[in-house]
């Protein structure tokens, strides 16, 4: 499962949902796999406002991945040469090239996949297994 998916998941136990510590779920004993995909620059620029950045940084740290910057990149940061004095105005979307920041973000969000391991709720401690890239959120009868 992709790390971006974790941006939209929480503990399946009802009473945890109102507790802030149930998000994000914390990966444990994770086996990671890189599944290469084409960089989609327009998508990366548009998804920025939907990312829970602090939580994403926590997940990366817990997985032992390189640190993400403390604040999220801006759309301009994602364009190659976007911060140089040479203005990017006039260049169409199609001519824009992804910056290293964009490539790094793409690798974290969409190419880094948890193949095996667990996702742990920070509120109740329940562990959800990930097998063959599929997370299992089914609860034993007494927890439903």
């Amino acid at each position: 499962m992709k790390l971006l998916t974790l941006n939209f998941l929480t503990c399946a136990i009802k009473t945890c949902k109102t507790n802030a510590s149930s998000f994000p779920l914390h990966p444990r004993d994770a086996e990671l796999e890189i599944q290469e995909a084409d960089v989609n620059l327009p998508f990366l620029k548009n998804i920025l406002p939907r990312l829970m950045w602090e939580e994403l940084r926590t997940i990366c740290k817990e997985l032992g991945l390189p640190d993400l910057p403390p604040t999220p990149p801006t759309p301009t940061d994602l364009i190659s040469g976007g911060n140089s004095t040479d203005t990017t105005e006039g260049r169409t979307q199609a001519e824009q090239e992804p910056s290293q920041t964009a490539k790094d973000l793409h690798r974290v969000l969409l190419e880094t996949c948890i193949q095996e391991g667990k996702l742990v709720c920070g509120c109740c401690g329940h562990e959800y297994a990930v097998k063959e890239g599929v997370a299992n959120f089914l609860l034993p009868g007494h927890l439903v």
Partner: peptide
């Protein structure tokens, strides 16, 4: 291309933020 995230094994939408 659109972005396909994942399919998770769960009961309805219980694991969705």
């Amino acid at each position: 291309r659109s972005i396909f995230l994942d399919i998770v094994n769960g009961d309805l939408a219980s694991s969705i933020r």
